[in-house]
C-alpha cells in the first residue's frame, strides 16, 4: 500500500468516523439523509456508467453524455403527456401502462441518438489529434442543450408525476420519511445495473466490448468488429442515461435544458471515483458521490456541496488515481 493509498483511506476513514458520530447523535436525521443520498446516488450511478464505458473503450470524456441524460427526461415528458388517461392525482392502470411504454421507448430513442452522435461526430475523428474529439464532444453538448433550449426555452419543464405518491404511498419509520418514489429509484437503478452486468459478462457483444477496451488492435485482429462494438457501447450508455433521465424526471418532476451539465460532471466524478473504465466502480462511485452530496447538503451546507464533490475528485486523483476499485490502465 502506497503513501497515496494510505492518505486516501485515512481521509475516507475520518469522513466515516465523523458520519458515524452524527449517526449516533441524530439517528433519524442521519437515516433521512441516507435515503435522499441513495436515491440521488442511484441516478448518478446510471449516468456514470455511460461515462465509464465510453472512456474505457475510446478514452474520450464524452461531455455530451450528461445532455443525453437530460434529453431522455425531455423526451420522456413529451411522450407521457400523450397518455391522456394517466393521472397525476392517483395511480391508475393507465399510469402503469404509460410508464411501461415510455421507459423502453425513451431508452431506445436515446440509444439511437447516441449512436448517431458517435457515428457523425466521433467516429470520423478517431485518428485525429486527441483534442479534436473532445472539442466535438463539448460542441455536441452545446448542440443538445441548444436543441432543448429551442424546444422549451429557458424555463423549467414539468414532468408528469405518474409514479404512485401521496398519502397512501409514503411512510415514516422511526422518524424517517420514505416514499414509494425513493424505493422505486433505487430498485429501478439496481435492476438496470444488474442487467448491464449480466449483459457485459455473458453476451458475446459484452465480451467484445471488454476485449476492445483492453486492446483495440488485438481485438480487431481477433475478428471483432470495432465500429459495431463502439457503437454498442454508446447505445448501452445512452440507454442507461435515458432511463436515468426518466427516473430523475419522475422523481423531481422538473427539469431544465442545462440540467445535464452539472449532473454530468457529478456523474463523471463518480466514474473517476470508482476507477474510470471500471463498470462496478462507476455504480459504486455513483452511490458514494450521491451519499456524499446528500451529507454535504445537510451537514456542511448545500452551497459547499459542489466544492466538496470536486474536492473529492481532485483528492482521489492525487492520492489514488486508480479510484476505489482500480482502473484499466492502457499500455503505452
Amino acid at each position: 500500500m502506497s503513501v497515496g493509498d494510505l492518505g486516501f483511506f485515512l481521509i475516507v476513514a475520518i469522513a466515516l468516523v465523523l458520519l458515524a458520530g452524527e449517526a449516533v447523535a441524530h439517528p433519524s436525521q442521519f437515516a433521512q439523509v441516507l435515503v435522499f443520498g441513495l436515491a440521488d446516488g442511484a441516478i448518478y450511478a446510471l449516468v456514470a456508467l455511460g461515462y465509464t464505458m465510453v472512456y474505457g473503450i475510446i478514452e474520450l470524456i464524452n461531455f455530451a453524455h450528461g445532455d443525453v441524460f437530460t434529453l431522455g427526461a425531455y423526451v420522456g415528458a413529451t411522450i407521457m403527456a400523450f397518455f391522456a388517461g394517466a393521472s397525476e392525482d392517483s395511480f391508475l392502470v393507465a399510469n402503469l401502462i404509460a410508464l411501461l411504454i415510455t421507459f423502453p421507448v425513451v431508452m431506445l430513442i436515446m440509444g439511437a441518438v447516441n449512436i448517431t452522435i458517435e457515428r457523425v461526430a466521433y467516429r470520423p475523428l478517431r485518428n485525429a489529434p486527441r483534442l479534436a474529439p473532445l472539442i466535438t464532444a463539448i460542441g455536441m453538448s452545446f448542440l443538445l442543450e441548444g436543441i432543448m433550449f429551442l424546444w422549451h426555452g429557458p424555463a423549467t419543464v414539468h414532468v408528469p408525476d405518474l409514479l404512485p405518491h401521496g398519502a397512501g404511498f409514503q411512510t415514516t419509520i422511526g422518524g424517517v420519511f420514505i416514499s414509494f418514489k425513493d424505493v422505486f429509484v433505487v430498485i429501478a437503478a439496481a435492476i438496470l445495473v444488474t442487467l448491464l452486468a449480466i449483459f457485459i459478462n455473458g453476451s458475446k457483444l459484452g465480451k467484445a466490448m471488454r476485449a476492445t477496451a483492453q486492446d483495440r488492435d488485438a481485438s480487431q485482429l481477433m475478428g471483432i468488429n470495432i465500429n459495431r462494438t463502439i457503437a454498442a457501447t454508446f447505445f448501452i450508455g445512452a440507454v442507461l442515461a435515458g432511463a436515468g433521465g426518466m427516473i430523475w424526471g419522475l422523481y423531481f418532476n422538473t427539469i431544465t435544458y442545462n440540467l445535464g451539465f452539472r449532473t454530468g460532471l457529478v456523474a463523471f466524478t463518480s466514474a473517476v471515483f470508482g476507477g474510470i473504465g471500471n463498470i462496478p466502480g462507476a455504480a459504486l462511485g455513483g452511490m458514494v458521490i450521491g451519499l456524499t452530496a446528500a451529507f454535504s447538503d445537510n451537514y456542511i451546507g448545500s452551497k459547499w456541496t459542489q466544492v466538496v464533490i470536486f474536492g473529492i475528485l481532485i483528492g482521489v486523483l492525487v492520492f489514488r488515481p486508480t479510484g476505489l476499485l482500480g482502473m484499466r490502465v492502457p499500455e503505452k
Partner: peptide
C-alpha cells in the same frame, strides 16, 4: 447555443 455547438462540431470535423 445550438449554433455555437454546431460551429464547434463542424469546425472540428
Amino acid at each position: 447555443f445550438l449554433l455555437y455547438g454546431l460551429i464547434l462540431v463542424g469546425m472540428m470535423l
